[in-house]
């Protein structure tokens, strides 16, 4: 087990390093002068002001020194200052992340509950009209843009039925619609995954043996089939959680919720590079760490993974 954990941890370090290099390079890959590009929107700046900003961002130093500066500050939690608001990027992220995390967690919980339930029902009624209907809903869920679903939810439940407030906020009532808009696609993916995984498991010999022993159908499904069928779903859940962090960017915009997404989009529209870099770095690192956690959980849940890793390492 330890070898498996060390294996995953050593894989993460170079990925994080490469992410930091890519995010650092964002500013340097801007065609032309990045500092000038930042001030195009606000009508330009004088040569002196540009030189001052260049100095402030450390752009007058050699490239490798700039990177070392960037990474050493980032490791200490200092991601620079927003060009527009002059606030600390780390502070802005710290203030906005709880809202994004809350939304992603609510979306994921909904996706797991709804997706697993629909997937099980579809698999148990395989090839029936019920199965076809659930799979049609799942295909629709994968195809429907979250921002459109969000607008439909606002129109139906906020404007017409007035069941939920449509003003922005972080309380549970205001969380419901954004969570549905964000989690519906993930629910559709999980439902498809659970269905196909459960159908595979139901064909296994040990399920036939369990039936032959005289166990009831519900015990066979819940205790024997589902436990094994849900193992691959853990990976999808991990990937989807990261995806939801990215998807929150759009959903936050639809519902005018504060969060990392709104922060990033605002930074992109204003060409506030330090803030945009900080947000991208933060979300990418969170995504990698969530996937690492999922990989480790997967290793615990499925002993075959550890065995495979150890045998290939030998």
């Amino acid at each position: 087990m330890w070898r498996y954990i060390i294996n995953r941890l050593t894989w993460v370090v170079p990925v994080l390093l490469a992410i930091s290099i890519l995010v650092f390079s964002m500013l340097h890959l801007v065609p032309g002068d990045p500092v000038r590009a930042m001030f195009v929107e606000s009508g330009g700046a004088t040569a002196e002001q540009l030189a001052q900003i260049r100095h402030l961002l450390g752009l007058d130093k050699p490239l490798h020194m700039q990177y070392l500066d960037y990474i050493s500050k980032a490791l200490r939690g200092n991601l620079g200052q927003s060009i527009i608001t002059q606030q600390s990027v780390s502070e802005l992220i710290r203030a906005n992340f709880p809202s994004t995390f809350q939304l992603a967690l609510a979306g994921m919980s909904l996706a797991v509950l709804l997706g697993t339930f629909l997937g099980i029902v579809a698999a148990l009624h395989h090839d029936s009209w019920f199965d076809n209907l659930i799979m049609l809903i799942a295909t629709l869920g994968v195809s429907m843009p979250s921002f459109w679903l969000g607008l439909l939810l606002i129109y139906v439940f906020g404007i017409k039925l007035r069941w939920v407030p449509i003003t922005s906020g972080t309380d549970l009532k205001r969380l419901a619609l954004p969570a549905v808009a964000l989690g519906f696609q993930a629910a559709a993916i999980i439902a498809r995954m659970v269905r196909s995984s459960l159908l595979e498991v139901l064909k296994e010999d040990y399920i036939r043996t369990a039936h032959a022993k005289g166990l009831s159908n519900s015990v066979v499904i819940l205790r024997h089939a589902l436990r094994n069928a849900l193992i691959p779903v853990v990976t999808v859940v991990g990937l989807q959680f990261g995806g939801l962090l990215g998807g929150a960017v759009i959903v936050e915009s639809v519902f005018a919720r504060r969060g990392i997404g709104q922060l990033l989009v605002g930074a992109l529209q204003a060409r506030d590079f330090p803030l945009a870099q900080g947000c991208v770095l933060f979300v990418a690192v969170t995504y990698v760490l969530v996937n690492l956690a999922v990989d480790l959980i997967y290793g615990f849940l499925d002993p075959r993974i550890q065995y495979h890793t150890e045998s290939t390492a030998l």
Partner: peptide
Amino acid sequence: MGLANVLLAFPGILLALAIIAVLGP
């Protein structure tokens, strides 16, 4: 593959947003 894994480390729309940050809208 290292390059592919690094690009895959950016969730969904985030990589596109990072590239838009560089290239402009």
